[in-house]
Design a binder for these strands. Structure first.
Length: 786
DNA sequence: GCGGATCAC
DNA sequence: TATGGTGATCCGC
């Protein structure tokens, strides 16, 4: 087989290249395959893209060779061993076969193209593609006759079909029609699974039973319903599981359906001659690999070669292949699907211009942050994606100990990642966030606390967004980017871990061990590569309920195994926190153009109207908050905002009403409160609960320092019979507690009463206090520091 | 946990 | 002139 192939390569090189576009998916039957291949090849030859494809192809060839070699090395004994294992596994998998459910897969026909034709009927019957010169999303069936298809660049498509009409994508339209189809799907399975805008999986077992209809009748009716609702046609496949249903929906496309009965023999017959490429999950590479190494082209052959597959692939891959051979697939309906990552990326003309690349990064960070805030997400793994000018894809990731969501935090870490790659010429940059903090949220609690948690999470997150907005609009210049990229000065911000503030509040029915106050100073800097995982564990320990029962000594022992002391970083940390405060003050001022006019709405208010101005900026904050909230899913439908559901209907009428009321109004439900007000209310609620143990993790970061001092005083008044653990960066917040733990990079550096610590001038705590005094020496020393 | 790869739409 | 964007998963370190 290999020999005949290579001889063809020399005479007709295009045949080795890009079987991608001509691989029969649907509607490509009468295509002059060779002509298409030749044109695609001619158009691509010599381009950077083409060169990269050749590299990739060479890599796959290498992979195939390696696998062949491994195959050849297997002894007869080994083969028979793996065959036995595989046979046993086949029996186990067979035992899981479930023929009790009836699954239907709906797939809209050339969805985007069909929608465009609907809104512009003159396109009917003409070859048309949705997309642009660089990429086509969907081609209608007329265009497919020319070999034009999805994922093909537009300029090649035009070569294949000069009269091809291009229509730009319009996702609003597609979402609208998608919603209409889903309304129909819902009638047959309220829990249907939306696979994309134009696909859905429905468990129609109950409908068939309740209405006494065959699955074929249900499919007919559903497709008719979709057509009546939208004017669009779709295809359906019915089978005992989702994997098969998906294959079936493709068989009589377009506007057709195929029923595979819930019968083992029928399934095995169906699967036997089926090309493996038809199976979802088997793509170009796997197809190639299985064919060239094992001679496998049909699903049936997966079983025949099960022994050798088991020998050469991982257990999970081998299992998947066996399932394909047996026609097995999922039959359950997963209750909730949590989002695991969120990303955005942009392609541009390849460049090595650092200012430009940094600009892109800023945009991406802002977009990502905004998207995350819409779903109230915070993540701790940030991945930078790069595509070089030669189309090579690279990713670089960091996992932080804190969950972040603000654009500054994202940008800070993203730029570090990018900086490490410079100099570099890129044509794409992307940012992805993963490891969201709601993942482990299994902690049930009383509703008051729950509300408070949501309060903190969404409130704080959205509030910071406004600061971003103003600061980027006003004072970010290219010079600034370059400086930041070229120096080692970290642009640090005050990081807030929402999770931290939530957990302690949710949990504290524990008896008080020794009725003493203590304090933690926390260094929030994320770990460099060393021991990141251990650190996050120690961090979690501080805030989890079981920790509260521990003695401080035992905590210290645990924490001290972790990371090296880095006092230098800590000092830097303190300085930068102060910087953050002052820059945030600047932001507030910059809301007023010429110190007089509001940047956002143009209202005029002299600087002497201090309170009024504060109220006014709070109003804008609340306005923004409300918009973010109304943009998200209504809570009544989805208790969490994490369901994968991008499309939601927005109602802004409420917001408009609000706009007419006085900015000074404080809404009873808190929707227009400032961040500081929110923190205050949280604190008040917590204090009213009269807990024996109170954990305040950066609980007053959003109020000004004077107010903070008042609050701290009040907390001491209210908690005289209570153990209070404070995590804070501000010295006054913690100066008069009974015990002080100074933490640096997750490790306890010192542990004693503040008085004792201050006796030693070189203690980390002394240094922090001195630095703090130095910085505040220009103002009044009204904290009574020694 | 990271980075490369594959896959689907 | 010119080959996308988003999300998931797996494998081998």
């Amino acid at each position: 087989m290999a020999e005949s192939e290579s001889s063809e390569v020399t005479s007709r090189p295009w045949q080795s290249y890009h079987t991608v576009y001509t691989n029969a998916k649907a509607g490509m039957e009468g295509v002059d395959k060779e002509k298409v291949q030749r044109i695609v090849y001619e158009m691509s030859k010599g381009s950077k893209y083409f060169e990269n494809e050749e590299r990739k192809e060479a890599f796959i060839k290498q992979k195939i060779e390696n696998m062949r070699a491994r195959c050849a090395k297997l002894t007869a004994a080994e083969i028979s061993h793996y065959q036995k294992v595989a046979d046993k596994r086949i029996l186990e998998l067979e035992a899981t076969r479930d023929l009790t459910r009836i699954w239907l897969h709906v797939d809209m026909d050339a969805f985007y193209a069909a929608v465009e034709t609907l809104s512009n009927p003159s396109l009917k019957g003409k070859p048309m593609a949705v997309g642009g010169m660089s990429m086509i999303s969907t081609a209608n069936y007329e265009a497919r006759k020319f070999g034009v298809r999805a994922a093909m660049p537009g300029f090649i498509a035009r070569k294949l079909c000069p009269q091809l009409i291009f229509v730009p994508t319009d996702f609003k339209k597609y979402t609208y029609y998608s919603d209409l189809t889903r309304k129909v799907f819902q009638k047959y399975d309220a829990n249907f699974m939306a696979a994309s805008l134009d696909e859905g999986y429905l468990d129609i077992t109950n409908v068939c039973k309740e209405r006494g209809m065959t699955s074929g009748e249900v499919a007919e009716e559903l497709r008719k319903g979709v057509y009546e609702e939208t004017g669009l046609t779709c295809s359906a496949g019915v089978a005992p599981n989702r994997l098969l249903a998906k294959v079936c929906s493709d068989i009589n496309k377009p506007n057709g359906q195929f029923i595979l009965p819930n019968d083992r023999m029928a399934v095995m017959t169906f699967i036997s001659s089926l090309p493996i490429r038809k199976i979802g999950g088997i793509g170009k590479v796997t197809e190639h690999l299985l064919r060239d190494v094992f001679g496998i082209t049909t699903c049936e052959e997966m079983l025949q070669k099960s022994g050798i597959l088991g020998a050469l692939f991982s257990p999970s891959s081998a299992d998947f292949f066996l399932c394909v051979g047996l026609g097995l697939g999922s039959t359950n309906t997963p209750q909730v699907r949590l989002r695991k990552s969120m990303s955005n990326e942009r392609t541009f003309l390849a460049t090595g211009d650092e200012a430009f690349l940094y600009h892109k990064l800023v945009d991406l960070a802002e977009m990502l942050s905004a998207d995350m805030k819409k779903e109230a997400l915070c993540g701790r793994t940030l991945t930078l994606k790069m595509k070089t000018a030669s189309f090579e894809i690279r990713t670089r990731a960091v996992t932080l100990q804190k969950y972040i969501c603000s654009s500054e935090d994202i940008l800070k870490h993203a730029s570090k990642l990018l900086k490490a790659e410079l100099p570099i010429s890129l044509r794409l940059i992307g940012l992805r966030m993963s490891q969201f903090n709601e993942d482990k949220d299994g902690t049930p609690s009383d509703p008051t606390q729950k509300t408070l948690s949501n309060f903190i999470v969404s409130g704080v997150a959205t509030g910071r967004n406004m600061d971003d907005h103003i600061s980027f609009d006003s004072d970010l210049s290219d010079d600034h980017f370059i400086t930041e990229l070229k120096t080692d000065l970290p642009i640090d911000n005050h990081e807030i871990c929402y999770n931290d503030f939530r957990d302690p509040l949710d949990s504290n029915e524990v008896s008080d061990p020794n009725n003493s106050n203590c304090l933690l100073i926390y260094n929030n800097d994320e770990m460099e590569k060393n021991d990141g995982s251990l650190n996050s564990k120690s961090k979690a320990k501080v805030n989890t309920p079981e920790m509260i029962g521990h003695t401080l000594k035992s905590y210290e022992a645990e924490a001290s195994q972790l990371v090296k002391i880095d006092l230098d970083t800590m000092n830097k940390r303190t300085n930068l926190s102060d910087d953050a405060v002052s820059s945030s003050n600047q932001n507030k001022q910059s809301l007023w153009v010429d110190d007089y006019k509001c940047l956002l709405c143009g209202i005029e208010m002299p600087s002497s109207f201090v309170e009024e101005r504060q109220e006014h900026s709070d109003f804008h904050l609340a306005e923004r908050l409300q918009k973010e909230e109304s943009d998200s899913n209504p809570r009544s439908l989805t208790p969490k905002k994490r369901f994968i559901q991008k499309d939601h209907i927005t109602s802004q009428s409420k917001r408009k009403k609000k706009h007419k009321s006085s900015p000074a109004d404080v809404a009873e439900d808190g929707e227009n409160w400032s961040m500081g007000q929110r923190q205050l209310v949280c604190l008040a609620r917590v204090l009213l609960q009269r807990r024996k143990i109170l954990v305040l993790d950066e609980a007053t970061t959003l109020v000004d320092t004077t107010t903070d001092n008042v609050i701290q005083w009040r907390i001491r008044e209210e908690t005289s019979r209570c153990t209070v653990i404070r995590v804070a960066h501000r010295i006054p917040t913690i100066i008069d507690n009974d015990l002080v733990l100074v933490l640096d990079e997750g490790k306890v550096v010192e542990y004693d009463s503040p008085t004792e610590l201050l006796k030693n001038n070189s203690s980390a705590f002394s240094k922090l206090v001195m630095e703090f005094k130095r910085r505040s020496s220009s103002g009044n020393n009204h904290w009574g520091l020694p």
